[in-house]
Write a protein that binds this DNA or RNA. Structure first.
Length: 425
RNA sequence: GUGGGCGUGGCUCAGCAGGUUAGAGCACCGGGUUGUGGCCCCGGAGGUCGUGGGUUCAAGUCCCAUCGCUCACCCCA
């Protein structure tokens, strides 16, 4: 038995990093006024077909889609925006606040060939801000995405582009089609196909010939209508105000059809061929397209696996172990220790003991390998004397402590330095 | 879907041009005088060499197939 291709178990060591990612993100979300929303993993297939776009790769060949027992076509969500917007519309959240700031954390599914930083079940921090088309919102959301990386101690380049709106993009698209039609022989095989199907895609082709040609192609930034151009300018100015350095990348294209105007990516070179740790953009007509009011919005997603990969490349602080290890010698001591163990836990300590009660040396070694801070030694002598030996594993200091009902509280007081990150949750 | 690399004890790997009981490091368990850890020393447990077929007197080592992992392409967080 083994996990499915592209599906991965997250073992405890790695899970610790996940917790750090989530805790950091939640903290940032909270400060920016974003609230959590939890939505289902399974949705009707039509939701994604309508939102992501019928002709996208995701919808055409990457979705986990199947019929349920009623014959209805269901899909494991390939991204977070569509389900969140569905819930937003279904529960009329726009009536509760003028601007809804939502985030969700969870698994997404795409049937792709796995590679570094890409799995069939992957996880995202997904953010949506609904109800405003103000460029300050763009800047705020983008700055928030960046801030999560900053607070994780990660570096990434922020790239920005605008894809225009229904007023200007179709015309630009046509200009591109015409341009590429006149230079077909200079395009790579893939791009000849893209040139008509999805001409924007040609712009981010990696082949040298295409890139050379792209440099001469009509630029989207020149084709933006005045409102879109103004929007982009203001977003950039606001990003500068927030001291969020960014680079304009007119060749940046998104894989989902619903984006309008602002798009952005957080790029790193440490993830193999997967450059983006996060990406997003504005989608001013999506809520309406999904059957809701005509409400603008903007969102982004950060790939948790990718963030964890980046964190793993950094020097890691050694994991901390339990506060206390109870080394019990003999059955009577173990019996006593088992009760004390529980009292210590109720008093707020993380505590462990070995139920088999092997030799003391063995238990000491175990305590050491667990990275326990204190060891309390209880044997027949201690039970008789009513005093046990408490050893600090780092300082090697030992002292006698009374075996009474106050002991758990006394031990809890001996450890006045809780981890600030954990206690802040 | 396409292409490359790889599949040996829990992990990282070594196994030379095919030849006796398949090794190491880490991790794990035990011991180094009777009740004290981290270093060191000694010992122990743990492997159908991914799977199936084939070649051969003999295959972890060669051939074929298959499965899986991995990296890249496509695409994407």
């Amino acid at each position: 038995m083994q996990a499915l291709k592209g599906f991965k178990d997250i073992l405890p060591d790695e899970a610790a990093l996940w917790q750090r990612v989530e805790a950091t993100a939640r903290d940032v979300f909270q400060r920016f006024g974003f609230e959590e929303i939890k939505v289902p993993i399974l949705e009707r297939t039509g939701l994604f077909a309508r939102s992501i776009g019928e002709a996208t790769d995701i919808v055409e060949k990457e979705m986990y889609t199947f019929n349920d027992r009623n014959g209805e076509s269901l899909t494991m969500r390939p991204e977070g925006t569509a389900p969140v917007l569905r819930a937003f519309i279904e529960h009329a959240l726009h009536l509760r606040r003028p601007l809804s700031r939502l985030f969700t954390i969870g698994p997404m599914f795409r049937h792709e060939r796995p590679q570094k930083g890409r799995l069939r079940q992957f996880h995202q921090l997904s953010v949506e801000a609904l109800g405003s088309d103000h460029p300050r919102l763009d800047a705020e959301v983008i700055a928030m995405a960046r801030q999560i990386l900053v607070e994780l101690g990660l570096a990434a380049e922020l790239q920005l582009n605008s894809l225009g709106c229904p007023a200007c993009r179709p015309a630009y698209r046509q200009k591109l089609v015409n341009f590429f039609a006149g230079h077909q022989e200079q395009l790579c095989e893939d791009c000849r196909r893209r040139a008509t199907a999805n001409p924007l895609r040609v712009l981010d082709c990696k082949s040298a010939n295409c890139r050379a040609l792209n440099a001469k192609a009509p630029a989207i930034l020149d084709a933006l209508c005045p409102p879109c151009a103004q929007h982009l300018t203001t977003v950039r100015r606001n990003l500068d105000t927030l001291q969020a350095p960014h680079r304009l990348n007119p060749f940046m294209v998104r894989g989902l059809d619903y984006y309008t105007r602002t798009t952005f990516e957080l790029i790193t070179d440490a993830l193999g061929s997967q450059g983006a740790v996060g990406a997003g953009g504005r989608y001013d007509s999506l809520v309406h397209r999904l059957g809701g009011q005509n409400l603008p919005g903007i969102g982004f997603a950060l790939g948790i696996e990718r963030l964890v990969l980046l964190l793993q490349e950094q020097p890691m602080a050694p994991a901390s172990g339990p506060d206390l290890f109870l080394a019990c010698l003999g059955e009577a001591a173990a019996e006593y220790g088992f009760t004390l163990l529980h009292q210590c836990r109720l008093a707020g300590l993380s505590a462990l003991m070995n139920f088999q009660t092997p030799g003391l040396k063995s238990q000491m070694r175990q305590a050491d390998r667990l990275k326990a801070r204190l060891v309390l030694l209880i044997g027949a002598n201690e039970l008789n004397a009513g005093q046990a030996v408490l050893r600090d594993l780092t300082s090697k200091e030992e002292c006698q402590v009374p075996l009474n009902d106050e002991l758990a509280a006394l031990l809890a007081n001996k450890l006045p330095t809780p981890d600030p990150l954990i206690s802040g949750l």
